[in-house]
Design a protein around this nucleic acid. Structure first.
Lengths: 243, 243
DNA sequence: TCCAGCATTGTGTGATCACACTTTTTATGG
DNA sequence: CCATAAAAAGTGTGATCACACAATGCTGGA
């Protein structure tokens, strides 16, 4: 079970050195990709056999995700996938509406022409994906677009907060990806943001982003029933062994 | 070493059930109380013997604090007390200036008369402590004042973010407690906040808080040399065994 | 006196086990 | 047939160990 460490080459996806890291990353991506249903119990030992490792790295990863609010811990200690209530979702939107525009303002003076071109490309990808009615690609392009900006602002603390928010946001948006396709104010706002960034207008870019977040949050607050079973979660089967 | 669990009574400070929790809390308070110097290495085993427990709970607690950004992890895996650089401190202030006013706005309609009276008392404590030139008491009263508000807004995600920020802020303010005594715009701002809260004016309260944060951050940015050894840290001796 | 080399110690990682507790299942009684 | 109790899995916690690696110290030579 130490192959991953003794054989650093290969394995395109989980290059993380320690088993802790690999277990964490696998669970994390499974989570944002909606592999688990809200309310699912993730027991240390079951996840461990699914991942093909011992209980120790899984315990670490589960607890880490709990600290990041990506999982909840029952009084008994068992980790469960959080069931986002409506107030919690509203809170999430309110925090995002403060932090992400801040990151946008901080990033504005640091965006190089190369990065601006990259943003342009992500916007094009979004539009194409939308024309093909491919909601997964739309979500992916949007995420790429915004995180190019968030990473450019070189604020590690802020970046981790935002990633933690997206970790919780992930499953909800994933579940609502078809509804979001019909909403689609994102394209407009991203165009606004990009134009403002090209002019170096931080305040304008931040404002457009804030509007995107509040509008998307408001849209989902009405078009989404909370505390409900999702479409077709895969469960632990989504966790292939660690190699 | 299981006394704490088999003897639930007694032990006024660390009532936490599991050893994980106790280790976490002890390290956490030691951290915010400035027991460690920036750059100190906290090895799992050394902390374990200082705490009188095995390595397991300490490992958990250390990793948890690292996720909360209260500690850094070296490439080797050793935990060290972060050395706050000037840009990092500025970033910290910028995030606080967004999130804490948000919490203030959310809390305003939920503040009961009892809570407002409690705020009044904390303000009085601040003023008294200031007259005695007791910087520790001043810091404590300020923290109490603000966290009464932050807890009242019933936003668990937001509260955890703010606590994480204060965890990082703690050592710096502790080190600068004497300088802060001479600054002291806090009293004024807290009075403003309290008056606004009594009128239910959320925007005004949030604005006053934002000014307090930005002014304190600006003050410390000039009156503090960064990446420097502190006064008299206690080190591991501050960690009394777990009972 | 200084530096190279090695031995010693200290380190985090991860596996495994015993224990106490909880949840589920099964059997037993009404 | 159902409710209740007993038994059986399943669970997290925490201690302990082996291992690989890093840092530290010491000893030997120049």
């Amino acid at each position: 079970m130490l192959d991953a460490r003794t054989d650093p080459a290969e394995a395109g996806e989980p290059p993380g050195g320690t088993l802790d890291e690999q277990a964490y990353r696998r669970l994390r991506t499974a989570l944002v990709e909606g592999a688990f249903a809200p309310g699912d119990r993730l027991s240390i030992r079951r996840v461990a056999v699914a991942l093909g490792v011992s209980a120790m790295p899984v315990r670490t990863a589960l607890r880490r995700l709990a600290v990041e609010q990506a999982l909840d811990i029952l009084p008994s200690g068992t980790a469960i996938v959080p069931r986002l209530t409506q107030p919690a979702f509203a809170e999430l939107g309110a925090i995002r509406a403060e932090l992400e525009p801040l990151a946008m303002r901080m990033a504005t003076p640091k965006l190089t022409p190369a990065l601006l071109d990259a943003l342009d490309q992500r916007l094009a990808e979004h539009i194409q994906a939308r024309e093909r009615s491919d909601p997964e690609a739309v979500l992916k392009a949007d995420r790429s677009f915004l995180f190019i900006v968030y990473q450019a602002c070189e604020a590690p603390m802020l970046l981790q907060f935002i990633e933690s928010l997206w970790l919780r946001r992930g499953p909800v948006f994933w579940e609502a990806r078809w509804s979001l396709l019909s909403h689609g104010g994102v394209r407009h706002h991203h165009r606004e943001i990009l134009a403002a960034l090209r002019h170096g207008d931080a305040a304008e870019a931040a404002l457009a982003l804030r509007q995107e977040i509040t509008s998307a949050t408001a849209f989902l607050m009405t078009h989404l029933q909370f505390a409900n079973g999702p479409s077709t979660p895969m469960g632990l089967a989504a966790l292939a062994p660690v190699r």
